[in-house]
């Protein structure tokens, strides 16, 4: 065999080898793609199940919170009004009886308002800004601390699930502040930038060490909840210097 023949064989062999190599490569890639696709589908199903579980938990917690609130209202507000009505209606004086009937009207209004909060349909009609405003007004009306809300309306458009999770996370943040921080002031600021919108919750209370395990798990839950709706949860706190929480959601 002369050298030219050898070289020709090398050329043919190299061409066939490269062709074979590429065929193997493409087949392998399709095979890996199929495998990863199955893994990805499994992961997505898992994420979807986790998301649904979170939403169910959030709904349940909001329900519980509402029931507690309703109980408190029945005891502190409607109960008092009913006692007053009874007293007035039992009075022989006609003006007292008129006052009693006015109280009855007020009770009917209060009960109607309360009954509306018992199912979660109110979530559909209330905007996040309104919800935060109501929560802050409630806190302030108890005389617990001063509150302020500053909003540019960037959270007015939200899906029901996003709103549900945000409401629960905000509720939890405010509860934590009231229960553990004893602040003089709670400020909430809603603003947006080019990529995302932010809710900042700032209190000037006792603060805490976020690295401690006892506080970490609650924060971890809030963080996970924000992640299920594609958002982020940031917290900075220092003993004696208050707490600053940021909830971020992309557009």
């Amino acid at each position: 065999m002369n050298p030219a023949d050898n070289q020709i064989y090398i050329i043919i062999f190299s061409t066939l080898f490269l062709g074979g190599l590429m065929s193997t490569f493409v087949v392998a890639m399709v095979f890996i793609h199929r495998q990863r696709q199955a893994q990805n589908r499994q992961k997505m199903d898992q994420m979807r199940a986790e998301f649904e579980k979170t939403i169910r938990n959030v709904e349940h917690e909001i329900h519980q919170e509402t029931l507690t609130q309703v109980g408190r209202e029945l005891h502190d507000n409607i109960g008092q009004l009913l006692s007053l009505t009874k007293l007035n209606l039992n009075s022989p004086k006609p003006e007292k009886q008129t006052e009693g009937r006015e109280y009855l009207d007020k009770i009917i209004k209060e009960v109607r308002a309360l009954s509306k909060t018992l199912n979660l349909d109110w979530l559909e009609s209330v905007s996040l800004d309104d919800f935060i405003r109501q929560q802050l007004e409630k806190i302030q009306s108890t005389g617990f601390c001063q509150t302020a809300l500053e909003s540019d309306g960037s959270y007015l458009e939200l899906s029901k699930d996003q709103k549900l999770v945000l409401i629960r996370v905000i509720q939890e943040c405010l509860n934590n502040a009231i229960k553990h921080a004893q602040p003089d002031r709670i400020d909430i600021r809603i603003a947006k930038n080019n990529q995302s919108r932010r809710i900042e919750i700032q209190d000037d209370g006792a603060g805490f060490d976020p690295s401690k395990a006892s506080t970490g798990s609650g924060m971890f839950n809030l963080k996970k909840r924000m992640e299920t709706i594609g958002g982020k949860f940031y917290l900075t706190s220092e003993v004696g210097k208050g707490t600053h929480i940021t909830l971020e959601l992309p557009f």
């Binding site: 020709i8 050329i11 043919i12 190299s14 061409t15 490269l18 590429m22």
Partner: peptide, 25 residues
Amino acid sequence: LLFNYSLTYVSSVSLLYLYRVNPVL
């Protein structure tokens, strides 16, 4: 594209040589 460039790689680099030595191939 992958097949095109891998199957013609060697023959394109050695095109003139092939025509000189073995024009049929």
